[in-house]
Every structure is written in structure tokens, then in C-alpha cells.
């Protein structure tokens, strides 16, 4: 069974509706033991890394996520669920994250650019360049638009952990992370129209 992790993330409903739309049966759970035993996990998220980590820790869900990723089952992280796979975020004065992948989460800083500067948050539809083919991209064109809303971006240490990139304000950042059985999107795939739904549907049948 696919488990959608409930840790009070604001987009839980949207992700659940999108999974239902593409026919991925799932149940929503806030129980770390249920997540640990899942066959497939979707890990949503929106908002700030600090409160997300706090909510996860208060239930022991942080360790359950580390455990389920280790078991090798397919895991999909979305937005904050992507960022907190890394070791540490600059948000909220510095937050220790799950450390499943080596790297940091950094704030967009355009203060050195001439005016008019790119807006922060990075909000709207931006193309994603797939670095290499992947089963999750089946049926999705290179440079398709996905919906982003974030002020911080994932900066993994190793190039092998980057599966997709996006350009914003003249800067290229990792918009899809690849950790083998765990893939995570900085964009909101549940709010990215038919393209986003296709990615979710591909995830539903993916065997890493």
C-alpha cells in the first residue's frame, strides 16, 4: 500500500486528490510504524523547514522516513519533503534535516543583481531540464513546466543526486533530487497540471 505521510503539511489534501485522480490507491497515516512498513511512500510538504522538522520529530516520523528509505521502497518527496532529505537548511536560522542525501538547503540571494531583481519566493511555472532519462519522466517532454513556490532551494553536494535542474534569476538549481529509490521534486507536482499528474502516475508503478 502507498502511504501518504501526514505530518500537518498544508498540501496533504491536494496530493491525496491528485493520487486518487491518477488511480494510485493510498492511505494517509501519521503513524511512524505504518510508514516504516509501507510499500511506497509519498512525503508531501509546504511552508517552512523548521516547523516541518518539528512536526516530524514530535511523532518520531523523522526516523521512520530514514528507515523506510533504507528499506529500498519507492519514496517521493515534494517541496519541503524534498528539501528536508538533505542535511541542513538555512531556513529559520538553521535547521538540521533528515540527512538522507548529502547537501544543504540555501536561500535564493539576488541582492548582488541589478534592479529589477528576481522575486523571492520563486513562484510560478518554470521549465525543468531532465539530466538523464528516468521512469518517472515517461511521457513527459524535456523542459516541461512545473509549478514552483519556494524561497529556499536544494543544493546537494554530489552531481549524481541531481535528476533535474531549473534556472531562476540566472542561477541553475537542482529541482529534482535522485537518491536511488527516493526521488524528490522541489516543485509541486500535485499542482502542476496534467504534466504533474503524469509524474505521480509514473511514480505509482515505478520499481526502483
Amino acid at each position: 500500500m502507498t502511504i501518504l505521510v501526514d505530518y500537518k503539511a498544508g498540501n496533504l489534501t491536494s496530493v491525496s486528490l491528485a493520487l486518487s485522480k491518477v488511480g494510485v490507491p493510498h492511505s494517509i497515516s501519521d503513524d511512524p510504524d505504518v510508514v516504516r512498513k509501507a510499500d511506497r511512500v509519498v512525503f508531501p510538504g509546504v511552508g517552512a523547514a523548521g516547523s516541518a522538522m518539528e512536526n516530524l520529530r514530535s511523532k518520531g516520523m523523522d526516523q521512520a522516513l530514514v528507515d523506510v528509505v533504507r528499506r529500498g521502497v519507492p519514496v517521493l518527496g515534494i517541496c519541503i519533503g524534498c528539501q528536508i532529505l538533505l542535511e541542513r537548511s538555512e531556513e529559520d536560522g538553521g535547521v538540521d534535516c533528515l540527512g538522507i542525501l548529502p547537501g544543504q538547503v540555501k536561500r535564493f540571494d539576488f541582492s548582488l543583481l541589478p534592479s529589477p531583481r528576481p522575486k523571492v519566493p520563486h513562484m510560478g511555472w518554470n521549465p525543468v531540464r531532465f539530466v538523464r532519462p528516468h521512469p518517472l519522466f515517461q511521457g513527459i517532454a524535456q523542459d516541461s513546466h512545473f509549478y514552483f513556490v519556494h524561497s529556499f532551494y536544494p543544493a546537494p553536494d554530489q552531481a549524481m543526486n541531481i535528476l533535474g535542474t531549473t534556472e531562476y534569476g540566472g542561477q541553475e538549481f537542482a529541482s529534482i533530487l535522485d537518491g536511488g529509490n527516493v526521488v524528490a521534486t522541489q516543485f509541486h507536482t500535485e499542482k502542476s497540471g496534467e504534466t504533474g499528474l503524469r509524474l505521480l502516475s509514473n511514480f505509482g508503478t515505478w520499481k526502483p
Binding site: L17, Y147, H188, K191
Partner: peptide, 8 residues
């Protein structure tokens, strides 16, 4: 709306 519309 949320059941039919998968954009923000």
C-alpha cells in the same frame, strides 16, 4: 474545485 483542478 480541488477534485477537478490540479493547478494552484
Amino acid at each position: 474545485v480541488a477534485k477537478h483542478v490540479f493547478i494552484p
